[in-house]
């Protein structure tokens, strides 16, 4: 705030104003902390005074079980991360391709366009879990040459199929927000449809859809747990194995914490980007 400006000496009034602002900021901060603390204490009191709390603490919050299960669940979680890291770029590519195909207006492309529409309709309509089961058990059952049998690969394929339908729609919405006058300007310069898309429309569209895309990826991170249904031993499955052996459910808590730890940075990044684009628009 203390900028060096030529010929400007901060006036009494401004000094007083800034002091008041500082006091007010301090007061808001204290109020926020105090009310948060009160809420947390009340919530803790409510839970710990519940009649079944002793049992719940034993089965869900067992420190011993926690430390014992952690290494296995963590190694399973590494599989979740791998699935996520491979599926994410694939989803981006497939989603973008589908969105671009739907933008092709020439009649030659009609079959392609129809196919893209059908793809989105189908994979947005079918629950992700169902897609995973169909791909995970159905594809290998065909016994076709070259079809992968490995569950992790099948899981990645299924998640890609399901999520790229959503992501395609996100991209398409972004493309639609670029004003037609931008295309007119590009075309008037002699750029063709493809060049207009590539250099003018897409760069603007992609910037606008980054926050919703990140949001979809937070959801994808969680949905990697669904591949446990086709036999992939990831975090959730590890926790399950452990829990069924000991009748203690603390490993689920371990898995939950790991998922939260993974999604929090992504969620904050989404907030940050959304706030930034809001500021830009306001400016």
């Amino acid at each position: 705030m203390t900028q060096q400006v030529d010929g400007w000496v901060k006036s009494e009034r401004q000094v007083e104003r800034e002091r008041q602002r500082g006091r007010r900021a301090f007061r808001s901060g204290s109020v926020a902390s105090a009310s948060t603390l009160v809420c947390l204490v009340a919530l803790a009191a409510l839970v710990t005074n519940a009649p079944g709390w002793a049992r719940v603490r034993e089965t869900f919050f067992n420190v011993e079980a926690f430390t014992e299960a952690l290494p296995d669940v963590l190694s399973g979680f590494w599989t979740n991360i791998q699935i996520f890291l491979i599926a994410e770029p694939l989803i981006l590519i497939v989603g973008l391709l589908i969105a671009l195909v739907r933008e092709l207006k020439a009649p030659v492309f009609f079959p392609l366009r129809a196919l893209a529409v059908a793809y989105v309709d189908v994979f947005r309509g079918v629950p992700t879990l169902l897609v995973i089961l169909l791909v995970g058990f159905g594809l290998p059952a065909l016994e076709l040459q070259g079809v992968p049998k490995d569950e992790v690969t099948l899981g990645v394929v299924a998640l890609t199929l399901s999520y790229s339908a959503y992501v395609a729609e996100v991209f398409r919405a972004g493309i639609a927000t670029v004003h037609p006058s931008q295309r007119a300007a590009a075309r008037s310069l002699g750029l063709g449809h493809g060049q207009t898309m590539r250099y003018v429309v897409l760069p603007q569209a992609v910037r606008r859809v980054i926050p919703p895309l990140l949001n979809d990826f937070v959801s994808l991170q969680k949905d990697t747990a669904l591949v446990s249904t086709i036999g992939v031993v990831e975090a959730l499955r590890q926790a399950q194995i452990y829990a069924s052996g000991t009748f203690n459910y603390t490993p689920y808590l371990v898995a939950a914490l790991l998922f939260i730890l993974l999604t929090i940075p992504m969620a904050r990044l989404t907030d940050h980007l959304a706030a930034r684009s809001q500021r830009r628009r306001g400016a």
């Binding site: 006058s181 931008q182 300007a185 590009a186 075309r187 008037s188 002699g190 003018v200």
Partner: peptide
Amino acid sequence: RKRLGMVFQAYNLF
């Protein structure tokens, strides 16, 4: 369009 130039009322810069 390669042989023509057009300028719009609303500039339409990228």
